[in-house]
Write a protein that binds this DNA or RNA. Structure first.
Lengths: 297, 297
DNA sequence: GCCATTATCTGACCTAAGTCAGATAATCAT
DNA sequence: ATGATTATCTGACTTAGGTCAGATAATGGC
Protein backbone atom coordinates (compact mmCIF):
# COMPACT_ATOMS: atom_id res chain seq x y z
CA UNK A 1 0.00 0.00 0.00
CA UNK A 2 2.78 2.37 0.96
CA UNK A 3 4.58 1.62 -2.30
CA UNK A 4 1.37 1.71 -4.32
CA UNK A 5 2.34 2.92 -7.81
CA UNK A 6 -0.38 5.52 -7.86
CA UNK A 7 0.79 6.91 -4.51
CA UNK A 8 4.32 7.07 -5.87
CA UNK A 9 3.24 9.02 -8.94
CA UNK A 10 1.34 11.43 -6.78
CA UNK A 11 4.42 11.88 -4.58
CA UNK A 12 6.36 12.66 -7.75
CA UNK A 13 3.75 15.21 -8.78
CA UNK A 14 3.96 16.94 -5.40
CA UNK A 15 7.77 17.06 -5.44
CA UNK A 16 7.84 18.43 -8.93
CA UNK A 17 5.05 20.91 -8.40
CA UNK A 18 7.03 22.47 -5.58
CA UNK A 19 10.19 22.68 -7.69
CA UNK A 20 8.53 23.76 -10.92
CA UNK A 21 6.21 26.14 -9.10
CA UNK A 22 9.30 27.85 -7.76
CA UNK A 23 10.58 27.94 -11.31
CA UNK A 24 7.44 29.64 -12.55
CA UNK A 25 7.52 32.31 -9.92
CA UNK A 26 11.19 32.86 -10.66
CA UNK A 27 9.98 34.33 -13.93
CA UNK A 28 8.32 36.91 -11.76
CA UNK A 29 11.76 37.66 -10.35
CA UNK A 30 12.26 40.08 -13.21
CA UNK A 31 9.16 42.10 -12.45
CA UNK A 32 7.07 40.83 -15.34
CA UNK A 33 3.99 38.64 -15.19
CA UNK A 34 4.31 35.05 -16.39
CA UNK A 35 2.21 35.64 -19.51
CA UNK A 36 4.44 38.42 -20.81
CA UNK A 37 7.57 36.43 -19.92
CA UNK A 38 6.24 33.44 -21.85
CA UNK A 39 5.62 35.54 -24.96
CA UNK A 40 9.08 37.11 -24.72
CA UNK A 41 10.56 33.66 -24.38
CA UNK A 42 8.64 32.32 -27.38
CA UNK A 43 9.90 35.19 -29.56
CA UNK A 44 13.42 34.65 -28.24
CA UNK A 45 13.18 30.96 -29.20
CA UNK A 46 12.62 32.04 -32.78
CA UNK A 47 8.83 32.13 -33.09
CA UNK A 48 7.89 35.23 -35.02
CA UNK A 49 4.37 35.00 -36.43
CA UNK A 50 1.83 36.25 -33.93
CA UNK A 51 -0.50 33.36 -34.78
CA UNK A 52 2.28 30.85 -34.32
CA UNK A 53 3.06 32.17 -30.85
CA UNK A 54 -0.63 32.17 -29.99
CA UNK A 55 -0.95 28.52 -30.98
CA UNK A 56 2.23 27.50 -29.19
CA UNK A 57 1.23 29.17 -25.93
CA UNK A 58 -2.50 28.46 -26.30
CA UNK A 59 -3.48 32.08 -25.80
CA UNK A 60 -6.70 33.87 -26.70
CA UNK A 61 -6.14 36.34 -29.51
CA UNK A 62 -7.21 39.28 -27.38
CA UNK A 63 -4.87 38.35 -24.58
CA UNK A 64 -2.03 37.71 -27.01
CA UNK A 65 -2.53 41.12 -28.54
CA UNK A 66 -2.44 42.86 -25.21
CA UNK A 67 0.67 41.01 -24.02
CA UNK A 68 2.40 42.00 -27.25
CA UNK A 69 1.39 45.66 -26.80
CA UNK A 70 2.83 45.52 -23.29
CA UNK A 71 6.16 44.19 -24.54
CA UNK A 72 6.18 46.87 -27.25
CA UNK A 73 5.62 49.57 -24.66
CA UNK A 74 8.56 48.18 -22.72
CA UNK A 75 10.53 48.53 -25.99
CA UNK A 76 11.53 44.84 -25.85
CA UNK A 77 9.71 43.84 -29.03
CA UNK A 78 8.77 45.38 -32.37
CA UNK A 79 6.07 44.05 -34.65
CA UNK A 80 5.49 44.67 -38.33
CA UNK A 81 3.15 43.28 -40.96
CA UNK A 82 4.50 40.39 -42.98
CA UNK A 83 5.45 41.51 -46.49
CA UNK A 84 3.71 38.58 -48.19
CA UNK A 85 0.48 38.89 -46.20
CA UNK A 86 -0.14 42.15 -44.45
CA UNK A 87 -2.88 40.69 -42.24
CA UNK A 88 -0.31 38.68 -40.35
CA UNK A 89 2.23 40.36 -38.12
CA UNK A 90 5.65 39.19 -37.09
CA UNK A 91 7.33 40.10 -33.83
CA UNK A 92 11.04 40.27 -33.17
CA UNK A 93 13.18 41.30 -30.23
CA UNK A 94 14.88 44.68 -30.03
CA UNK A 95 18.39 44.71 -28.62
CA UNK A 96 16.91 45.46 -25.19
CA UNK A 97 14.58 42.49 -25.74
CA UNK A 98 17.49 40.23 -26.56
CA UNK A 99 19.22 41.31 -23.36
CA UNK A 100 16.09 40.61 -21.35
CA UNK A 101 15.61 37.21 -23.02
CA UNK A 102 19.24 36.34 -22.27
CA UNK A 103 18.66 37.28 -18.64
CA UNK A 104 15.75 34.81 -18.42
CA UNK A 105 17.86 32.12 -20.04
CA UNK A 106 20.61 32.76 -17.52
CA UNK A 107 18.15 32.49 -14.63
CA UNK A 108 16.78 29.18 -15.89
CA UNK A 109 20.25 27.80 -16.45
CA UNK A 110 21.37 28.84 -13.00
CA UNK A 111 18.42 27.11 -11.40
CA UNK A 112 19.11 23.90 -13.30
CA UNK A 113 22.83 24.02 -12.57
CA UNK A 114 22.07 24.60 -8.90
CA UNK A 115 19.91 21.49 -8.79
CA UNK A 116 22.69 19.43 -10.35
CA UNK A 117 25.32 20.81 -8.01
CA UNK A 118 23.23 19.82 -5.00
CA UNK A 119 22.96 16.21 -6.14
CA UNK A 120 25.96 13.93 -5.80
CA UNK A 121 24.98 11.48 -8.56
CA UNK A 122 24.05 13.96 -11.25
CA UNK A 123 24.30 11.37 -14.05
CA UNK A 124 21.65 9.14 -12.56
CA UNK A 125 19.40 12.05 -11.75
CA UNK A 126 19.65 13.27 -15.34
CA UNK A 127 19.01 9.80 -16.74
CA UNK A 128 15.91 9.51 -14.56
CA UNK A 129 14.73 12.96 -15.64
CA UNK A 130 15.23 12.01 -19.30
CA UNK A 131 13.22 8.85 -18.81
CA UNK A 132 10.36 10.65 -17.12
CA UNK A 133 10.37 13.48 -19.66
CA UNK A 134 10.35 11.02 -22.57
CA UNK A 135 7.52 9.02 -21.04
CA UNK A 136 5.41 12.09 -20.28
CA UNK A 137 6.10 13.61 -23.68
CA UNK A 138 5.72 10.49 -25.75
CA UNK A 139 2.84 11.98 -27.75
CA UNK A 140 5.12 14.84 -28.72
CA UNK A 141 7.95 12.75 -30.18
CA UNK A 142 8.46 13.59 -33.86
CA UNK A 143 10.48 11.74 -36.47
CA UNK A 144 12.59 14.13 -38.54
CA UNK A 145 14.94 13.68 -41.45
CA UNK A 146 18.26 15.34 -40.60
CA UNK A 147 21.77 15.68 -41.93
CA UNK A 148 23.85 12.72 -40.66
CA UNK A 149 26.71 15.14 -39.99
CA UNK A 150 24.48 17.51 -37.98
CA UNK A 151 24.33 17.90 -34.23
CA UNK A 152 21.36 15.60 -33.55
CA UNK A 153 22.75 12.77 -35.67
CA UNK A 154 26.25 13.05 -34.22
CA UNK A 155 24.77 12.89 -30.71
CA UNK A 156 22.88 9.69 -31.52
CA UNK A 157 25.82 8.07 -33.27
CA UNK A 158 28.21 8.86 -30.42
CA UNK A 159 25.79 7.23 -27.95
CA UNK A 160 25.27 4.32 -30.35
CA UNK A 161 28.99 3.60 -30.70
CA UNK A 162 29.51 3.92 -26.95
CA UNK A 163 26.75 1.39 -26.36
CA UNK A 164 28.15 -1.07 -28.91
CA UNK A 165 31.55 -0.78 -27.21
CA UNK A 166 29.89 -1.68 -23.90
CA UNK A 167 27.76 -4.54 -25.21
CA UNK A 168 29.90 -6.33 -27.79
CA UNK A 169 32.05 -9.07 -26.27
CA UNK A 170 35.16 -7.75 -27.98
CA UNK A 171 34.24 -4.07 -27.77
CA UNK A 172 33.59 -2.00 -30.87
CA UNK A 173 35.93 -0.01 -33.06
CA UNK A 174 34.05 2.03 -35.64
CA UNK A 175 37.04 1.96 -38.04
CA UNK A 176 36.75 -1.85 -38.36
CA UNK A 177 33.07 -1.64 -39.30
CA UNK A 178 31.93 -0.85 -42.81
CA UNK A 179 31.24 2.77 -41.96
CA UNK A 180 28.90 4.28 -44.52
CA UNK A 181 29.84 7.60 -45.98
CA UNK A 182 27.55 10.34 -44.79
CA UNK A 183 26.78 11.25 -48.41
CA UNK A 184 25.17 7.82 -48.87
CA UNK A 185 22.68 8.70 -46.10
CA UNK A 186 21.35 11.96 -47.55
CA UNK A 187 18.80 12.70 -50.23
CA UNK A 188 18.54 11.41 -52.93
CA UNK A 189 20.63 8.28 -52.22
CA UNK A 190 19.45 7.69 -48.66
CA UNK A 191 18.29 9.38 -45.47
CA UNK A 192 19.01 9.76 -41.79
CA UNK A 193 16.06 9.89 -39.41
CA UNK A 194 15.99 10.87 -35.73
CA UNK A 195 13.16 10.82 -33.21
CA UNK A 196 13.17 14.21 -31.49
CA UNK A 197 11.47 14.84 -28.17
CA UNK A 198 11.39 18.54 -27.31
CA UNK A 199 14.88 19.14 -28.67
CA UNK A 200 16.52 15.95 -27.41
CA UNK A 201 17.28 13.24 -29.98
CA UNK A 202 16.05 9.92 -28.58
CA UNK A 203 16.57 7.48 -31.42
CA UNK A 204 17.95 7.27 -34.94
CA UNK A 205 18.21 5.11 -38.05
CA UNK A 206 20.15 5.51 -41.28
CA UNK A 207 19.21 4.51 -44.82
CA UNK A 208 22.32 4.01 -46.95
CA UNK A 209 21.73 3.89 -50.68
CA UNK A 210 23.94 3.84 -53.75
CA UNK A 211 21.40 5.28 -56.15
CA UNK A 212 20.22 1.80 -57.20
CA UNK A 213 17.15 -0.18 -56.14
CA UNK A 214 18.78 -1.78 -53.11
CA UNK A 215 19.70 0.05 -49.92
CA UNK A 216 20.89 -0.81 -46.46
CA UNK A 217 19.40 0.10 -43.07
CA UNK A 218 22.13 1.08 -40.60
CA UNK A 219 22.65 2.60 -37.17
CA UNK A 220 19.33 1.81 -35.55
CA UNK A 221 19.60 3.07 -31.97
CA UNK A 222 17.13 4.00 -29.22
CA UNK A 223 18.26 5.92 -26.11
CA UNK A 224 18.05 3.80 -22.94
CA UNK A 225 15.72 6.38 -21.42
CA UNK A 226 13.27 5.93 -24.30
CA UNK A 227 13.12 2.15 -24.65
CA UNK A 228 9.70 0.60 -24.52
CA UNK A 229 8.03 3.53 -26.25
CA UNK A 230 7.97 1.77 -29.63
CA UNK A 231 10.44 4.15 -31.23
CA UNK A 232 12.42 1.34 -32.88
CA UNK A 233 9.32 0.07 -34.61
CA UNK A 234 8.27 3.60 -35.62
CA UNK A 235 11.68 4.44 -37.03
CA UNK A 236 11.80 1.19 -39.02
CA UNK A 237 8.36 1.96 -40.48
CA UNK A 238 9.47 5.51 -41.31
CA UNK A 239 12.69 4.39 -42.97
CA UNK A 240 10.76 1.90 -45.10
CA UNK A 241 8.36 4.64 -46.12
CA UNK A 242 11.29 6.92 -46.93
CA UNK A 243 12.92 4.17 -49.04
CA UNK A 244 9.68 3.67 -50.94
CA UNK A 245 9.59 7.40 -51.74
CA UNK A 246 13.18 7.20 -53.04
CA UNK A 247 12.28 4.36 -55.41
CA UNK A 248 14.17 1.72 -53.45
CA UNK A 249 12.76 -1.81 -53.86
CA UNK A 250 14.84 -3.96 -51.51
CA UNK A 251 16.25 -3.25 -48.05
CA UNK A 252 19.00 -5.19 -46.30
CA UNK A 253 20.61 -4.94 -42.88
CA UNK A 254 22.98 -6.77 -40.58
CA UNK A 255 23.09 -7.00 -36.80
CA UNK A 256 25.12 -8.48 -33.96
CA UNK A 257 24.21 -11.32 -31.64
CA UNK A 258 24.77 -9.06 -28.63
CA UNK A 259 21.67 -7.07 -29.63
CA UNK A 260 18.84 -9.58 -29.27
CA UNK A 261 16.12 -6.93 -29.03
CA UNK A 262 17.09 -5.62 -32.48
CA UNK A 263 16.88 -9.10 -34.02
CA UNK A 264 13.49 -9.65 -32.34
CA UNK A 265 12.23 -6.37 -33.80
CA UNK A 266 13.27 -7.34 -37.35
CA UNK A 267 11.71 -10.79 -37.07
CA UNK A 268 8.51 -9.29 -35.76
CA UNK A 269 8.18 -6.65 -38.47
CA UNK A 270 8.34 -8.67 -41.64
CA UNK A 271 12.08 -9.04 -42.31
CA UNK A 272 13.47 -12.30 -43.69
CA UNK A 273 16.73 -13.79 -42.49
CA UNK A 274 19.22 -14.30 -45.36
CA UNK A 275 22.82 -15.53 -45.72
CA UNK A 276 25.78 -13.28 -44.94
CA UNK A 277 26.14 -10.58 -47.62
CA UNK A 278 29.19 -8.69 -46.35
CA UNK A 279 32.39 -9.23 -44.37
CA UNK A 280 31.68 -6.84 -41.49
CA UNK A 281 33.39 -8.39 -38.45
CA UNK A 282 30.59 -7.22 -36.16
CA UNK A 283 27.75 -8.72 -38.22
CA UNK A 284 26.22 -12.03 -37.12
CA UNK A 285 22.70 -11.95 -38.58
CA UNK A 286 21.49 -10.70 -41.95
CA UNK A 287 18.00 -9.66 -43.06
CA UNK A 288 16.18 -8.34 -46.09
CA UNK A 289 12.76 -6.89 -46.77
CA UNK A 290 11.05 -6.01 -50.03
CA UNK A 291 9.42 -2.57 -50.10
CA UNK A 292 6.66 -1.33 -52.42
CA UNK A 293 5.09 -4.78 -52.14
CA UNK A 294 1.32 -5.02 -51.75
CA UNK A 295 0.54 -4.95 -48.04
CA UNK A 296 0.06 -8.30 -46.29
CA UNK A 297 0.15 -10.06 -49.65
CA UNK B 1 25.72 20.86 -26.36
CA UNK B 2 22.57 19.01 -27.30
CA UNK B 3 22.95 16.76 -24.28
CA UNK B 4 24.00 19.62 -22.04
CA UNK B 5 22.79 18.70 -18.54
CA UNK B 6 21.16 22.06 -18.04
CA UNK B 7 19.25 21.73 -21.32
CA UNK B 8 18.11 18.28 -20.22
CA UNK B 9 16.81 19.57 -16.90
CA UNK B 10 14.94 22.31 -18.66
CA UNK B 11 13.41 19.75 -21.01
CA UNK B 12 12.32 17.81 -17.93
CA UNK B 13 10.77 20.95 -16.47
CA UNK B 14 8.82 21.60 -19.65
CA UNK B 15 7.55 18.03 -19.90
CA UNK B 16 6.47 18.01 -16.30
CA UNK B 17 4.92 21.46 -16.39
CA UNK B 18 2.67 20.32 -19.21
CA UNK B 19 1.66 17.17 -17.32
CA UNK B 20 1.32 18.76 -13.91
CA UNK B 21 -0.35 21.83 -15.40
CA UNK B 22 -2.97 19.52 -16.83
CA UNK B 23 -3.26 18.03 -13.37
CA UNK B 24 -3.85 21.42 -11.84
CA UNK B 25 -6.57 22.32 -14.28
CA UNK B 26 -8.11 18.93 -13.72
CA UNK B 27 -8.92 20.23 -10.26
CA UNK B 28 -11.04 22.75 -12.10
CA UNK B 29 -12.82 19.80 -13.63
CA UNK B 30 -15.09 19.79 -10.61
CA UNK B 31 -16.08 23.44 -11.02
CA UNK B 32 -14.05 24.79 -8.15
CA UNK B 33 -11.01 27.08 -8.34
CA UNK B 34 -7.65 25.60 -7.48
CA UNK B 35 -7.33 27.51 -4.20
CA UNK B 36 -10.56 26.12 -2.79
CA UNK B 37 -9.70 22.62 -4.02
CA UNK B 38 -6.33 22.81 -2.28
CA UNK B 39 -7.92 23.79 1.02
CA UNK B 40 -10.50 21.02 0.73
CA UNK B 41 -7.68 18.59 0.00
CA UNK B 42 -5.63 19.76 2.98
CA UNK B 43 -8.57 19.25 5.30
CA UNK B 44 -9.25 15.85 3.76
CA UNK B 45 -5.60 14.90 4.39
CA UNK B 46 -6.21 15.47 8.07
CA UNK B 47 -5.11 19.05 8.62
CA UNK B 48 -7.64 20.73 10.86
CA UNK B 49 -6.23 23.87 12.44
CA UNK B 50 -6.83 26.89 10.23
CA UNK B 51 -3.33 28.16 10.94
CA UNK B 52 -1.81 24.81 10.10
CA UNK B 53 -3.54 24.75 6.72
CA UNK B 54 -2.46 28.32 6.08
CA UNK B 55 1.17 27.45 6.76
CA UNK B 56 1.05 24.28 4.71
CA UNK B 57 -0.46 26.00 1.67
CA UNK B 58 1.38 29.29 2.19
CA UNK B 59 -1.80 31.36 2.07
CA UNK B 60 -2.47 34.86 3.31
CA UNK B 61 -4.77 34.84 6.30
CA UNK B 62 -7.39 36.91 4.52
CA UNK B 63 -7.43 34.65 1.50
CA UNK B 64 -7.51 31.56 3.70
CA UNK B 65 -10.50 32.91 5.55
CA UNK B 66 -12.41 33.62 2.39
CA UNK B 67 -11.69 30.22 0.87
CA UNK B 68 -12.91 28.60 4.06
CA UNK B 69 -16.11 30.70 4.00
CA UNK B 70 -16.65 29.58 0.41
CA UNK B 71 -16.33 25.91 1.35
CA UNK B 72 -18.69 26.47 4.29
CA UNK B 73 -21.25 28.04 1.98
CA UNK B 74 -20.97 24.97 -0.24
CA UNK B 75 -21.67 22.95 2.93
CA UNK B 76 -18.50 20.90 2.42
CA UNK B 77 -16.79 22.06 5.59
CA UNK B 78 -17.73 23.14 9.08
CA UNK B 79 -15.48 25.12 11.39
CA UNK B 80 -15.63 25.55 15.13
CA UNK B 81 -13.43 27.11 17.76
CA UNK B 82 -10.94 24.81 19.41
CA UNK B 83 -12.06 23.94 22.95
CA UNK B 84 -8.65 24.58 24.50
CA UNK B 85 -8.10 27.93 22.73
CA UNK B 86 -11.17 29.61 21.30
CA UNK B 87 -9.09 31.99 19.14
CA UNK B 88 -8.06 29.09 16.92
CA UNK B 89 -10.57 27.38 14.71
CA UNK B 90 -10.59 23.84 13.41
CA UNK B 91 -12.18 22.79 10.16
CA UNK B 92 -13.52 19.39 9.29
CA UNK B 93 -15.36 17.89 6.36
CA UNK B 94 -19.11 17.33 6.36
CA UNK B 95 -20.31 14.13 4.77
CA UNK B 96 -20.79 16.04 1.49
CA UNK B 97 -17.22 17.32 1.91
CA UNK B 98 -15.92 13.80 2.37
CA UNK B 99 -17.67 12.74 -0.80
CA UNK B 100 -16.18 15.67 -2.70
CA UNK B 101 -12.71 14.95 -1.31
CA UNK B 102 -13.05 11.31 -2.32
CA UNK B 103 -14.01 12.45 -5.82
CA UNK B 104 -10.78 14.49 -6.08
CA UNK B 105 -8.77 11.54 -4.83
CA UNK B 106 -10.39 9.32 -7.42
CA UNK B 107 -9.57 11.82 -10.18
CA UNK B 108 -5.93 12.02 -9.11
CA UNK B 109 -5.64 8.26 -8.90
CA UNK B 110 -7.20 7.81 -12.31
CA UNK B 111 -4.76 10.25 -13.85
CA UNK B 112 -1.82 8.45 -12.29
CA UNK B 113 -3.12 5.03 -13.26
CA UNK B 114 -3.70 6.28 -16.80
CA UNK B 115 -0.11 7.42 -17.04
CA UNK B 116 1.11 4.01 -15.89
CA UNK B 117 -1.16 2.17 -18.26
CA UNK B 118 0.16 4.17 -21.20
CA UNK B 119 3.74 3.28 -20.40
CA UNK B 120 4.96 -0.24 -21.20
CA UNK B 121 7.79 -0.30 -18.64
CA UNK B 122 5.92 1.04 -15.66
CA UNK B 123 8.51 -0.26 -13.17
CA UNK B 124 11.32 1.74 -14.67
CA UNK B 125 9.18 4.84 -14.99
CA UNK B 126 8.21 4.57 -11.33
CA UNK B 127 11.81 4.02 -10.25
CA UNK B 128 12.88 7.10 -12.20
CA UNK B 129 10.05 9.14 -10.69
CA UNK B 130 11.06 8.00 -7.21
CA UNK B 131 14.64 9.02 -7.85
CA UNK B 132 13.68 12.45 -9.13
CA UNK B 133 11.20 13.03 -6.33
CA UNK B 134 13.74 12.00 -3.70
CA UNK B 135 16.40 14.26 -5.20
CA UNK B 136 14.09 17.26 -5.49
CA UNK B 137 12.69 16.70 -2.02
CA UNK B 138 15.94 15.90 -0.26
CA UNK B 139 15.57 18.87 2.09
CA UNK B 140 12.23 17.46 3.19
CA UNK B 141 13.46 14.01 4.21
CA UNK B 142 12.84 13.41 7.91
CA UNK B 143 14.18 10.67 10.14
CA UNK B 144 11.45 9.17 12.32
CA UNK B 145 11.39 6.50 14.99
CA UNK B 146 8.74 3.94 14.09
CA UNK B 147 7.40 0.58 15.19
CA UNK B 148 9.46 -2.15 13.46
CA UNK B 149 6.22 -4.04 12.88
CA UNK B 150 4.51 -1.02 11.28
CA UNK B 151 3.87 -0.37 7.62
CA UNK B 152 6.89 1.82 6.90
CA UNK B 153 9.33 -0.57 8.60
CA UNK B 154 7.84 -3.63 6.95
CA UNK B 155 8.16 -1.96 3.56
CA UNK B 156 11.86 -1.21 4.14
CA UNK B 157 12.61 -4.68 5.47
CA UNK B 158 10.90 -6.39 2.56
CA UNK B 159 12.97 -4.34 0.10
CA UNK B 160 16.09 -4.99 2.18
CA UNK B 161 15.64 -8.76 2.20
CA UNK B 162 14.87 -8.76 -1.54
CA UNK B 163 18.06 -6.86 -2.20
CA UNK B 164 20.17 -9.19 -0.06
CA UNK B 165 18.70 -12.13 -1.95
CA UNK B 166 19.79 -10.50 -5.22
CA UNK B 167 23.26 -9.50 -4.10
CA UNK B 168 24.50 -12.34 -1.90
CA UNK B 169 26.29 -15.07 -3.85
CA UNK B 170 24.22 -17.77 -2.23
CA UNK B 171 21.03 -15.76 -1.96
CA UNK B 172 19.49 -14.86 1.37
CA UNK B 173 17.08 -16.68 3.61
CA UNK B 174 15.96 -14.58 6.55
CA UNK B 175 15.31 -17.66 8.67
CA UNK B 176 19.02 -18.57 8.58
CA UNK B 177 20.07 -15.13 9.78
CA UNK B 178 20.01 -14.17 13.44
CA UNK B 179 16.71 -12.33 13.09
CA UNK B 180 16.23 -9.93 15.96
CA UNK B 181 12.91 -9.97 17.71
CA UNK B 182 10.92 -6.82 16.98
CA UNK B 183 10.60 -6.17 20.72
CA UNK B 184 14.38 -5.74 20.93
CA UNK B 185 14.10 -2.82 18.49
CA UNK B 186 11.55 -0.73 20.39
CA UNK B 187 11.88 1.63 23.31
CA UNK B 188 13.43 1.21 25.83
CA UNK B 189 15.67 -1.63 24.63
CA UNK B 190 16.29 -0.34 21.12
CA UNK B 191 14.77 1.60 18.25
CA UNK B 192 13.85 1.42 14.59
CA UNK B 193 14.45 4.50 12.45
CA UNK B 194 13.23 5.24 8.93
CA UNK B 195 13.95 8.18 6.63
CA UNK B 196 10.58 9.35 5.29
CA UNK B 197 10.24 11.52 2.19
CA UNK B 198 6.70 12.77 1.72
CA UNK B 199 5.16 9.54 2.90
CA UNK B 200 7.56 7.13 1.19
CA UNK B 201 10.12 5.33 3.41
CA UNK B 202 13.52 5.64 1.73
CA UNK B 203 15.90 4.12 4.25
CA UNK B 204 15.97 2.38 7.60
CA UNK B 205 18.18 1.15 10.42
CA UNK B 206 17.49 -0.90 13.52
CA UNK B 207 19.03 -0.70 16.99
CA UNK B 208 18.71 -4.00 18.81
CA UNK B 209 19.36 -3.86 22.53
CA UNK B 210 18.97 -6.31 25.43
CA UNK B 211 18.64 -3.71 28.15
CA UNK B 212 22.35 -3.73 28.86
CA UNK B 213 25.11 -1.35 27.82
CA UNK B 214 25.85 -3.05 24.51
CA UNK B 215 23.56 -3.03 21.48
CA UNK B 216 23.69 -4.05 17.87
CA UNK B 217 23.00 -2.02 14.73
CA UNK B 218 21.02 -4.06 12.20
CA UNK B 219 19.11 -3.74 8.94
CA UNK B 220 20.75 -0.64 7.48
CA UNK B 221 19.17 -0.14 4.08
CA UNK B 222 18.82 2.76 1.62
CA UNK B 223 16.41 2.60 -1.32
CA UNK B 224 18.21 2.48 -4.67
CA UNK B 225 16.38 5.62 -5.73
CA UNK B 226 17.81 7.52 -2.75
CA UNK B 227 21.45 6.47 -2.81
CA UNK B 228 23.97 9.25 -2.85
CA UNK B 229 21.87 11.55 -0.72
CA UNK B 230 23.83 10.74 2.43
CA UNK B 231 20.94 8.93 4.11
CA UNK B 232 23.13 6.04 5.29
CA UNK B 233 25.45 8.42 7.09
CA UNK B 234 22.52 10.36 8.55
CA UNK B 235 20.78 7.23 9.80
CA UNK B 236 23.98 5.92 11.41
CA UNK B 237 24.45 9.25 13.17
CA UNK B 238 20.83 9.20 14.30
CA UNK B 239 21.01 5.65 15.60
CA UNK B 240 24.15 6.50 17.57
CA UNK B 241 22.39 9.49 19.06
CA UNK B 242 19.42 7.31 19.91
CA UNK B 243 21.69 4.72 21.56
CA UNK B 244 23.34 7.44 23.62
CA UNK B 245 19.91 8.57 24.85
CA UNK B 246 19.09 4.97 25.86
CA UNK B 247 22.25 4.71 27.94
CA UNK B 248 24.02 2.34 25.57
CA UNK B 249 27.81 2.58 25.68
CA UNK B 250 29.00 0.18 22.97
CA UNK B 251 27.60 -0.58 19.52
CA UNK B 252 28.42 -3.58 17.35
CA UNK B 253 27.40 -4.70 13.88
CA UNK B 254 28.19 -7.24 11.22
CA UNK B 255 28.05 -7.02 7.44
CA UNK B 256 28.56 -9.10 4.31
CA UNK B 257 31.35 -8.86 1.74
CA UNK B 258 28.77 -8.36 -1.03
CA UNK B 259 27.93 -4.95 0.43
CA UNK B 260 31.17 -2.98 0.00
CA UNK B 261 29.47 0.42 0.25
CA UNK B 262 28.23 -0.45 3.74
CA UNK B 263 31.70 -1.48 4.89
CA UNK B 264 33.16 1.74 3.43
CA UNK B 265 30.57 3.77 5.33
CA UNK B 266 31.46 2.11 8.65
CA UNK B 267 35.19 2.58 8.10
CA UNK B 268 34.64 6.23 7.20
CA UNK B 269 32.48 7.03 10.21
CA UNK B 270 34.64 5.93 13.09
CA UNK B 271 33.86 2.23 13.45
CA UNK B 272 36.64 -0.23 14.34
CA UNK B 273 36.94 -3.65 12.75
CA UNK B 274 36.89 -6.45 15.36
CA UNK B 275 36.95 -10.28 15.32
CA UNK B 276 33.84 -12.30 14.59
CA UNK B 277 31.42 -12.12 17.52
CA UNK B 278 28.57 -14.30 16.25
CA UNK B 279 27.92 -17.29 13.99
CA UNK B 280 25.63 -15.59 11.48
CA UNK B 281 26.30 -17.38 8.16
CA UNK B 282 25.86 -14.13 6.24
CA UNK B 283 28.33 -12.09 8.31
CA UNK B 284 31.86 -11.54 6.96
CA UNK B 285 32.98 -8.33 8.67
CA UNK B 286 32.48 -7.16 12.25
CA UNK B 287 32.68 -3.65 13.70
CA UNK B 288 32.26 -1.85 16.98
CA UNK B 289 32.00 1.76 18.06
CA UNK B 290 32.01 3.31 21.51
CA UNK B 291 29.27 5.88 22.07
CA UNK B 292 29.18 8.69 24.66
CA UNK B 293 32.91 9.11 24.06
CA UNK B 294 34.32 12.60 23.73
CA UNK B 295 34.10 13.63 20.05
CA UNK B 296 37.18 13.05 17.90
CA UNK B 297 39.16 12.08 21.01
C1' DG C 1 -8.17 43.49 36.15
C1' DC C 2 -5.46 45.36 32.48
C1' DC C 3 -2.59 45.32 28.61
C1' DA C 4 0.08 43.18 25.13
C1' DT C 5 -0.22 39.32 22.17
C1' DT C 6 -2.36 36.08 19.16
C1' DA C 7 -5.74 33.99 15.74
C1' DT C 8 -9.03 34.89 12.70
C1' DC C 9 -12.11 37.69 10.03
C1' DT C 10 -13.79 41.70 7.09
C1' DG C 11 -13.65 45.28 3.71
C1' DA C 12 -11.21 47.75 0.24
C1' DC C 13 -8.27 47.30 -3.24
C1' DC C 14 -5.09 45.43 -6.91
C1' DT C 15 -3.08 42.59 -10.69
C1' DA C 16 -3.07 38.72 -13.84
C1' DA C 17 -5.46 35.96 -16.74
C1' DG C 18 -8.94 34.93 -19.63
C1' DT C 19 -13.51 35.49 -22.44
C1' DC C 20 -16.32 37.46 -25.90
C1' DA C 21 -18.42 40.49 -29.15
C1' DG C 22 -17.54 43.38 -32.48
C1' DA C 23 -14.14 46.64 -35.33
C1' DT C 24 -10.60 46.98 -38.81
C1' DA C 25 -8.08 45.82 -42.61
C1' DA C 26 -5.98 42.61 -45.88
C1' DT C 27 -6.69 38.66 -48.86
C1' DC C 28 -9.05 35.14 -51.63
C1' DA C 29 -12.54 33.07 -54.66
C1' DT C 30 -15.48 33.81 -58.16
C1' DA D 1 -15.35 44.21 -58.31
C1' DT D 2 -17.57 42.14 -54.51
C1' DG D 3 -18.64 39.32 -50.79
C1' DA D 4 -16.71 35.82 -47.80
C1' DT D 5 -12.79 34.72 -45.15
C1' DT D 6 -8.83 35.53 -42.33
C1' DA D 7 -5.62 37.80 -38.91
C1' DT D 8 -5.27 40.95 -35.59
C1' DC D 9 -6.85 44.47 -32.50
C1' DT D 10 -9.97 47.00 -29.08
C1' DG D 11 -13.18 47.54 -25.41
C1' DA D 12 -16.07 45.65 -21.87
C1' DC D 13 -16.40 42.26 -18.65
C1' DT D 14 -15.37 38.21 -15.40
C1' DT D 15 -12.87 35.31 -12.23
C1' DA D 16 -8.98 33.92 -9.44
C1' DG D 17 -5.56 35.08 -6.56
C1' DG D 18 -3.45 37.98 -3.56
C1' DT D 19 -2.28 42.23 -0.30
C1' DC D 20 -3.08 45.18 3.48
C1' DA D 21 -5.04 47.83 7.15
C1' DG D 22 -7.82 47.56 10.66
C1' DA D 23 -11.80 45.02 13.45
C1' DT D 24 -13.01 41.44 16.71
C1' DA D 25 -12.39 38.37 20.22
C1' DA D 26 -9.78 35.15 23.13
C1' DT D 27 -5.58 34.40 25.82
C1' DG D 28 -1.52 34.94 28.86
C1' DG D 29 1.56 37.58 31.88
C1' DC D 30 1.81 40.48 35.53
Amino acid sequence: MIADPVARIRRFNRAVTLEVGALDTSFLGRGRPLGAARVLNAIGQGLGDVGEIRDALQLDSGLMSRLLRGLEEEKLVVTEPRPDDARRRVARLTSAGRREFAAYERLSNQRAAGLLARHPHADELLAAMDLVASALGRERIAIEEVDPRGEAARHCLAEYYAELARRFEKGFDVSLSRDPQAKDMVHPRGAFLVAMSDGLPLACVGLKGDGGETAEVKRLWVAPSARGLGLGRKLMAAVEERARALGIRMLRLDTNRALPEARALYLKSGWTEIPRFNDDPYADFFFEKRVCAARDA
